[in-house]
Structure formats: C-alpha cells, structure tokens
C-alpha cells in the first residue's frame, strides 16, 4: 500500500500508524503524529489503520521563533 509520509509517497507493509512509525525508524516517544490533518495521540497510534493514500505527518521538535 502507498501512503503519503511527510509529503513523500511511501510504499509500506505497515497496517497501523504505530507500525509505520516503527518501520520507518522514527523515535516513537519523541515525535507527534497527525493523520489527514487530525492529531493522533501516542496512545492511539496502534488503533489507526492505514489506508491507501492516507496522509501521515510525523513531526519533531525543531528550531522556532
């Protein structure tokens, strides 16, 4: 299945958001996630089922003003 991960089309075998975070090598405790523009709390990542073309954002603390 292909999902859009941080703006890039990504082929994945993961079935949930939690699995995607894992297989893509993100540090799960240090990132925040949103799916199709909606915040997904850490505790519910394993309950979000990925579907074709779903838009996933995985964000980290960065510099800001």
């Amino acid at each position: 299945m292909q999902v859009e991960l941080n703006g890039k089309p990504t082929e994945t075998k993961a079935s949930t958001l939690a699995e995607l975070i894992e297989v893509e090598g993100f540090e799960a405790p240090c990132v925040a996630t949103a799916v199709d523009g909606v915040f997904v709390p850490k505790a519910t990542r394993d309950k979000v089922t990925l579907t074709e073309g779903i838009r996933v954002e995985v964000l980290s603390p960065m510099q800001g003003g």
Binding site: N6, A32, V58, L59
Partner: peptide
C-alpha cells in the same frame, strides 16, 4: 525559549 514542530531533518 520558543521552538517549533517540523518534519525531522
């Protein structure tokens, strides 16, 4: 200090 959230580089 202010910080942001971005796709990690």
């Amino acid at each position: 200090i202010t910080v942001s959230l971005r796709r990690e580089g």
